[in-house]
Every structure is written in structure tokens, then in C-alpha cells.
């Protein structure tokens, strides 16, 4: 990503989603914030990392968002050959589009008329963060991680997705080295839409499986 300054504090202000960050800088220092400052300073003093590396890494994570995944999904909707490459190796297909996803091992799972996929990590909080950015808070909760593997349909209903009984639900537990992204089904009535317009229909949750794409 373009990066022309290394000011530590320029990340404050508005987030990519347009919300103010928590105003942690003027609240009482917590034990864990104190530990973060101490660990960071010691790492810098020991020559293990530099302040510039931290700033670059924060910028890189901030630049990743569900919009990246939405672009990949929209491309797959309009280009059958790309869709096949995505299903064969989603990491390489994402890199082909120019996304810097590092060593991410990514598998795309396709929603169809009779199959719905749902992603979870019951052991920790594995998520395709190098493509989609940091996971939503609910993805990391005990409630989601406990229930998604046992009662996925009830979980989906809480997210407003009520599947027909004839649909097969496939849950994917990211237990080891792979990360997953759902390729949602292209909504009906979108034949005349451009790739960019299609990408605007793809929500974060539709790529985790707890949502469906927006209707045009």
C-alpha cells in the first residue's frame, strides 16, 4: 500500500467503516495497555522491531477489508474461468487480482441452490484476515464458536437467514492451516449489473456464511 509517513498516531480519527475509534487515549491506563507499551518498547530497544515496521503493519491491516473479498466474489460471478481458479486455489486467485494476502492458504466454498456454507473456528479465531481484515467481534465469541458446529441453522436464524429444509448446511471448522471464504450465490435479477455494482452486494457476513448478499 502507498505509505508516505510514519506518524504513530495518524490511525486515529475515523475507521474505514466510518466509526470513531474508541477514545482509549484519555481513559485510565489499564494493566494490559501498560504491558503493551512495555513489551513494544522492549522489542524496539532490543532491536527486534522498529516503530516504522509497526506503523506499516497497522496500515497494512487497516487497508484490508471485506471489500477485497467482495471484489473476488464479484469477479467469480462474472468470469467462469476465474471462478474455477478460485475454487481450485482461492489464495492464488486472490493474489492474481493483486491482493497482498501473504502466505494465506485459502479455500473457497460455494453456496448453491441446495448448499449453504458456514465458517467458524472453534479452537481460536482463525479468519481470512489477510484478505478480509480483522474478524467481527461476534466471530470470536464463545457463543458463536460453541454453537455454530452444533446448531448452525439456529445460529443462521439469529443472523436473519432462514434456510429451506431441503438445503444442506456445510459447516467448516478452521482447525489448522487453512482459512475459508464463502462464495455466495449470485442474486437473481443481477444480469445487467457490472462487476463493481455486483461487488457492492457482497457483505462481510455473506462471505462468512452468516448472511446472504444484498438484493439489487
Amino acid at each position: 500500500m502507498p505509505h508516505d509517513h510514519h506518524d504513530h498516531f495518524h490511525h486515529e480519527g475515523l475507521s474505514p467503516s466510518g466509526h470513531p475509534y474508541r477514545s482509549d487515549n484519555d481513559e485510565p491506563l489499564s494493566y494490559w495497555q501498560c504491558m503493551e507499551i512495555a513489551v513494544r518498547e522492549l522489542l524496539i530497544e532490543k532491536g527486534q522491531i522498529t516503530p516504522a515496521e509497526i506503523a506499516v503493519q497497522i496500515d497494512a491491516m487497516d487497508a484490508r477489508s471485506p471489500a477485497n473479498g467482495a471484489a473476488v466474489v464479484a469477479r467469480a460471478w462474472v468470469d467462469p474461468a476465474f471462478k474455477q481458479r478460485l475454487l481450485d486455489n482461492a489464495g492464488d486467485a486472490s493474489r492474481e487480482m493483486g491482493f497482498d494476502i501473504g502466505p494465506l492458504n485459502l479455500i473457497a466454498v460455494e453456496n448453491t441452490a441446495d448448499t449453504h456454507n458456514l465458517i467458524v473456528c472453534t479452537l481460536c479465531s482463525c479468519y481470512p484476515r489477510n484478505l478480509l481484515g480483522l474478524p467481527p467481534d461476534w466471530y470470536k465469541t464463545r457463543e458463536y464458536r460453541s454453537r455454530a458446529v452444533r446448531e448452525p441453522r439456529a445460529v443462521l436464524r439469529e443472523f436473519g437467514v432462514d434456510l429451506p429444509a431441503g438445503t444442506t448446511v456445510r459447516v467448516h471448522d478452521s482447525t489448522a492451516d487453512m482459512r475459508y471464504i464463502v462464495l455466495p450465490a449470485r442474486p437473481n435479477g443481477t444480469d445487467s449489473m457490472t462487476e463493481t455494482e455486483l461487488a457492492s452486494l457482497v457483505t462481510r457476513d455473506s462471505m462468512i456464511g452468516t448472511g446472504l448478499p444484498r438484493q439489487p
Binding site: 498516531f9 490511525h11 486515529e12 475509534y21 482509549d24 487515549n25 495497555q33 503493551e36 513489551v39 513494544r40 522489542l43 522491531i49 515496521e53 509497526i54 503493519q57 497497522i58 491491516m61 487497516d62 480483522l134
Partner: peptide, 9 residues
């Protein structure tokens, strides 16, 4: 910011 820094570390 402190959370993003931990993530970066």
C-alpha cells in the same frame, strides 16, 4: 490503537 498495536506485534 493499543489493540492494533498488539495485533501488529
Amino acid at each position: 490503537l493499543w489493540e492494533k498495536r498488539i495485533d501488529a506485534l
